[in-house]
Structure formats: C-alpha cells, structure tokens
Simulated scan of single mutants.
Amino acid sequence: MELVPGVHVAVTDRHGGVSAPPYDTRNLGGLTGDDPVAVRANRDGVAAELGVRAIVFMRQVHGAEVAYVSEPFGGDAPPVDGVFTTEPGLALASLGADCPAVLVADPVARMVGAAHSGRPGTEAGIAAALVGAMADKGADPRRMVALIGPGACGHCYEVPAELRDQVAAKVPQAHSTTSWGTPALDLRAGIEAQLLAAGVPDVRHDARCTIEAAELYSHRRQDPGRFAGLVWLA
C-alpha cells in the first residue's frame, strides 16, 4: 500500500512461499534453520511480487545501531537493527515474529527507513535512533510518517514483573497488563511514544497481534519462521 505519495509499505504473511513445515510457507528468516534455498526463493518471490529491484535484510541483533544503505548487504552483513536509504526501488525489510517493524518516510527528502524494535531494541530506543540518523542526512522529523507493524500486543505479551519494570523505567508507555491480569509489555505504545518524542507527528499502526493472528509467524506460538515489514521509494 502507499504510505504517502511516492512511498510504499508492505507486510508479508506466512502464505505463498515454498518452505516446508514447520516453516510453511513464506519464511523470510535466514537464521531459522529453514532450507536456505527455500528462504532465498521466498525472498526473491517477495521482491518480484512487490516489483522492487532488491531487498535489504539486516543482521538483527536487538540493538540500536543504524546504517545508510544503497544496496543489499553482502554475505557478512553488519549487526544493525535500523537501515535507511534514498535509493528508489530498494526495499528495506525488518524481520519479525512478535517484534514490530518500524517503517518511516520523509516524502520531501525522498528518504525511507526501517527498524526492528523488539523488547531490547525498544528499550534501547532504536526507533528514535533511526529518526535521528535520517535527520542527520537531511530528513526532517516534522515531515515524517511512520507505520508500526504487527507485533505481540500489550494484552498478550506476558513478561515477568521485574522485566516489565525494567523496560518501563526507560519507556513508561510500554507498561501493560495482560487480559488475564499478569504483567505485560505494550511495545506498540512504547514505540509510538518514542517516535512522537523524536518529532514524528504522524504515527500509524498495523494493529494485528502476532500471537493472535494465525496468518503471521509468532515466536510466542513457537513458530520458527519470520515475516517482514518493508518500505521503499517508488
């Protein structure tokens, strides 16, 4: 779909690929134990379906490092959880199976970025780091539009009370309680607060909960595959 004029976003699901069970069928994660040939076929299929020239996949490590890219990483990708580009037709992917993708665009600067914001990355502030890196290259947060992709929701993402308190000490908005009354984290609320604090005025959501949505992979459901949130310039 078009996030803003000239900028497209997409969220893949688990259907339409070639991976065998238990990865069935469109697993995009290269470090999941799936057949590398199947993962490559799935990634090539997504690129063809979206009509992009290439897709950048990160070596995600749950950190807050961000890199500018003009081509896909080679075989030894650096450990980053955020990437951004001004290259048309180069899609940026954030893989997840409960961790939300953060997709950001400044349509005037013609710059887009993607981040992987799981629990450690949200605690480390990867969304704000991405916005800051883009601003350093000439983008303006006041013009940015962001989409937070699917993830484990605040009513399902149960964690120990100590972990909830640890994250909430840095990201208060992430403090949550499950629908059955136990400690939880709401990463979506935390990420939105970080983006707003970084100056991004327009934050949108794909509000699906990965734990509840059968069409998406979920680590909490013990699915081994990964789906992707993607953003690219037309």
Rank of each mutant, 00 (worst) to 15 (best):
M1W: 03
M1L: 02
E2W: 00
E2I: 03
V7G: 07
H8F: 10
V9F: 08
V9T: 10
V11I: 14
D13N: 12
G16A: 04
G17C: 02
V18Y: 08
S19K: 03
A20R: 15
Y23L: 11
N27H: 08
N27T: 11
L31V: 12
L31I: 12
A38G: 08
G45R: 10
V46P: 07
L50V: 12
G51A: 05
V52K: 09
A54D: 14
A54Y: 03
M58Q: 15
M58S: 14
R59Q: 13
R59P: 02
R59S: 12
H62G: 09
G63K: 13
G63S: 10
E65L: 08
V66Y: 06
V66M: 11
V66P: 06
Y68V: 06
V69R: 01
P72E: 01
P72V: 01
F73W: 02
D76N: 12
P79C: 13
G82C: 07
F84L: 04
T85R: 05
G89Q: 09
L92Q: 05
S94M: 10
A97E: 04
A97K: 12
A101Y: 07
D106S: 04
D106V: 04
P107Y: 07
A109Y: 02
A109G: 06
H116K: 08
H116S: 14
G118P: 02
G118V: 09
R119N: 06
P120L: 09
P120T: 13
T122F: 00
G125V: 03
G125C: 03
A129R: 08
L130D: 04
L130E: 03
M134Q: 02
P141S: 00
P141K: 00
R142A: 08
R142Q: 02
R143Y: 01
M144S: 01
M144Y: 00
V145T: 14
A146G: 04
A146T: 06
A146K: 02
A146I: 07
L147P: 00
I148C: 00
P150L: 06
A152G: 12
C153G: 11
G154D: 01
C156S: 07
C156H: 08
Y157H: 08
V159P: 00
L163D: 07
D165F: 00
D165Y: 01
Q166T: 14
V167Y: 02
V167I: 07
A168S: 14
A168C: 05
A169D: 05
H175F: 04
T178H: 04
T182E: 08
P183I: 09
L185C: 00
R188W: 10
R188Q: 15
R188V: 15
Q194H: 07
Q194D: 13
L195A: 12
A197F: 11
A197G: 11
A198R: 13
P201G: 10
H205K: 12
D206N: 13
E215R: 14
L216D: 03
L216W: 03
L216C: 04
Y217S: 05
S218K: 11
H219I: 06
H219E: 09
R221P: 06
P224Y: 15
R226Q: 15
F227R: 12
A228T: 13
A228V: 12
G229N: 15
L230M: 13
V231M: 14
V231A: 13
L233C: 06
